[in-house]
Amino acid sequence: MKPARFDYARPETLSDALAILADGGAEASVLAGGQSLMPMLNLRMARPGMLVDINRIPGLDAIALADGVLSIGARARHAEVLASPLVRQAAPLLAQALHHVAHPAIRNRGTLGGSLALADPAAEMPACVTCLGATIVLASASGKRRVAAEKFFLGVYATAIEPGELILHVEIPAIRPGWTHAFQEVSRRHGDYAMAGLALALRRDGSRVAEARIALCGVESATRRQAEAEAALVSGGVGAACQMLGGLDAMGGDEVTAAHRIHLARVLLRRAVGTED
């Protein structure tokens, strides 16, 4: 189980990286933490002509909170995000969800940007940034562009990233007063990819849910805001929201069927509403 041959570049600056990516086109793959890419290389399921290692580019791992926006560099390692007081303060959802992401050695190396760029439908981070209304900032040789998380995830391993583009950082609106976050997940074993996971942000008015944001992982092929369920949660409570989840376009599978995933999404929603903090 050894990778096929590839070329390797390790730019020291962002502009070098973008230039290489622009030349490499679809043949080039960005190597950040490598915790998903490397297994695929070893299995020869991924065969990029060129790996562009972004681990030496300064500044890509910064975590900052300013003007109500939490900015997390694409190369921030899961372990760094998990340990960050700023993240816990401004986006507690991420810290909750990261406990479900793999295991310590993977979190030491794996990055937020890598997880978003891969867009595994069962991964936690895409659902979290979608739930939180994050903006993904992309760069290419021709400039920067900003894509709302809601428009970023297009399908199984499919995103809005164009050839030649690199995720720079993610901007997450900091949690506002009155809002709470909850992340719930079911997986066969802790740290495995989710059979179903649910990211929830809520604002309550007394005991009544006044506003809700919901995104799922492991259920549909691309994570998205569950607008119908959100509206139902506000208008009719958790029972009504669960009803709406019946309309999910859930993935099937050998071990976990679509009906099974919808069932789990409902279980998780019931659990999340009431355990959020």
Binding site: Q35, I106, N108
Partner: peptide, 24 residues
């Protein structure tokens, strides 16, 4: 395993433990 699941290849790189099969 060579696909990042088993942990038998753990080594420390710059002070943190990583999977030796998931790094070049």
């Amino acid at each position: 395993c060579e696909h990042g699941v088993c942990g038998a290849c753990h080594v420390q790189v710059d002070g943190v433990v990583v999977r030796g099969c998931l790094m070049l």
